[in-house]
Design a protein around this nucleic acid. Structure first.
Lengths: 160, 160
DNA sequence: TTTATTTATGTATTTAACTACGTAGTTTTG
DNA sequence: CAAAACTACGTAGTTAAATACATAAATAAA
């Protein structure tokens, strides 16, 4: 029925994107309903600093799995919110060391119960006959082993 | 292990996005390897016009499930590529009717075998113990029935 | 038949990520 | 120790979607 399903790529990719956007928006509203001023996208940085205390920009980027420019823009927002602060590393002057502020630490204690709730809600949604998280992992593994491109090229040469 | 998994939202959403980006890029390369100058994102519009012949902008947007501004920008690209053309509807002057050009139709015949190959490669990747497409559908259905937000708020009130 | 509503299209702006590039410290090597 | 390579950070620009808004044509209603 669905047009997009002839090749399937777009079908999957756009639906994944929408699903993820939906989850983010709802996540923001959940925080709001708890009276917490927090955006889901800040989570990885805050959470990382929560258990690693002091990290440089690139270290954070690696931890959260984003590029460093993306990380920098998150850090800018968080600094504006006064949830983190930064200072120069005295040993290596290129480095900027990032830490949570007291406000940031306080916020985490407020958010912890919310994270529990969200985790449960998310599990309700994604743990079905086919578990979404596992399905993603399995697809990621397949791609890691041999990319979509390689597979397609191989199928192509086999079909010749 | 993974930091992001405390709340899970970001974990899922960013990974979904990356997976989809990956598939798109590889899709583009597959076309290229066949000597076809085509971007995966054009697929929905082209495919829709292939079997519906003549449609207005909003009709296409609805068919492909995008907003009309997004659709307009795709149409601009496709018109630049001379794969589609458009003319005003004589009955309803607000409407712009879109059609494939001869070049566009020719391209489709070239692409059909490529679509088959991609479909197979995609199936290889996504059809695992947990089928990705089905997992998405199941999650979408759950959300349709009750949103992430509603679920979270309900869990919250239950926990009080 | 004016007026109000709806529909179709288009533009401008936003968002969240990316890549590409540049600069300035740090480390390694000849 | 000077030159080369590498690392850390930052900025600019791009992308693919979305919203929000604006305008104009068509339809409905008073």
């Amino acid at each position: 029925m669905n047009i997009i399903d002839e090749s399937g790529i777009l079908a999957i990719s756009t639906r994944l994107q929408r699903l993820s956007e939906q989850l983010r928006k709802d996540g923001a509203l959940v925080y709001k309903s708890y009276g917490i001023d927090f955006e889901p996208k800040w989570f990885p940085v805050i959470y990382t600093l929560h258990y690693r205390d002091t990290l440089s920009v690139v270290e954070i980027a690696n931890e959260i799995g984003y590029t460093h420019p993306s990380t920098i823009s998150l850090l800018k927002e968080l600094e504006k919110q006064k949830l983190i602060r930064s200072k120069k590393d005295k040993i290596d002057e290129r480095k900027r060391l990032i830490q949570l502020t007291a406000k940031g630490q306080e916020l985490i204690t407020q958010m912890k119960p919310v994270w529990e709730v969200m985790k449960s809600a998310l599990t309700e949604i994604t743990d079905n006959q086919n578990n979404l998280l596992k399905a993603i992992e399995e697809a990621e593994n397949k791609i890691m082993h041999q990319s979509f491109l390689q597979r397609a090229l191989q199928l192509q040469s086999e079909g010749e």
